[in-house]
Simulated assay, not measured.
Amino acid sequence: MAIERGFRFGINFDDAFPRGLVMVGDVAPDNEFQSREDRAANRPVRQRVDEVTGKRQWKATVTDLGEEKAKRASFEITFLAEVQPVPTTSEVLPGMRPIELEGLTAEPRVGGQGEFKYQTYVFRATGFKAVAASAGKSARSSAASDDTSKAA
């Protein structure tokens, strides 16, 4: 049995990004390409629709804090939702906020050119996790470290 091209694997956020993600800028509509002729004719801009889910596509630039290679650390993530997703965290620096994603999927792709190809992924999400979920995660982490120190 073969896995078809374009298959999306569901993945847990903590498994994909163990050190977390930082969103740079805002979430914006992912619009279709508009030619010069289309702009001159004042044709409306159309937002892309996902072929699999039928939902509107939104995009945001993120930085993977666990990636060591600068060229691969920042990339765009696509959100699939009828309305624009809104981050649940506040900015830590102007235009930058730590985020966690829900409904995360990964689609394997080949990146690079010529003899410098490598495997990469296209990540899609349905939205942002609530702030309370990340607070619980840090509480669990500190509780686990307390248990470890007690065991020693």
Rank of each mutant, 00 (worst) to 15 (best):
S134T: 15
S149L: 15
Y121P: 00
R36N: 09
E91C: 03
S35E: 08
G95M: 04
N12K: 01
F79A: 03
R19N: 13
S145Q: 14
V24N: 03
T105E: 03
P108I: 05
S145C: 07
Y121T: 02
P29R: 10
G10E: 14
P85I: 11
D50Y: 00
V83G: 04
T63L: 11
Q34L: 13
G54W: 10
A16K: 03
S138R: 15
E37M: 02
T63P: 00
F79L: 10
P29Y: 11
E67A: 10
A139Y: 04
V45A: 15
T105P: 01
R109V: 13
M23Y: 06
D30Y: 13
Q47M: 14
T88H: 09
R39F: 14
R8G: 01
R48S: 12
S141Y: 02
A73W: 06
G112V: 13
L80Y: 02
I3R: 06
V92P: 00
N12T: 04
Q34W: 00
G20L: 06
R56K: 15
K129E: 15
R8F: 01
R43K: 15
W58S: 04
T78G: 01
A133H: 05
V22S: 10
A2C: 01
F128W: 07
R5F: 14
S134W: 09
A144M: 12
D50F: 00
I11P: 02
V49M: 12
V131I: 09
T63R: 13
E68T: 07
P108G: 15
V86F: 02
A125W: 03
A143L: 14
Y121E: 14
P18G: 02
E32I: 01
G112Y: 14
D146C: 04
P108E: 11
E115H: 06
L80I: 02
S145H: 02
I99Q: 07
A143H: 05
E100D: 07
A139W: 07
N42T: 00
A40K: 14
A73S: 12
D147V: 05
F33P: 00
R8V: 03
S138E: 14
R109S: 06
D30G: 00
Q47Y: 09
V45I: 15
L104F: 05
R36L: 08
D26R: 09
F17M: 05
K117P: 00
A28K: 15
N31T: 12
A151Y: 08
G136N: 14
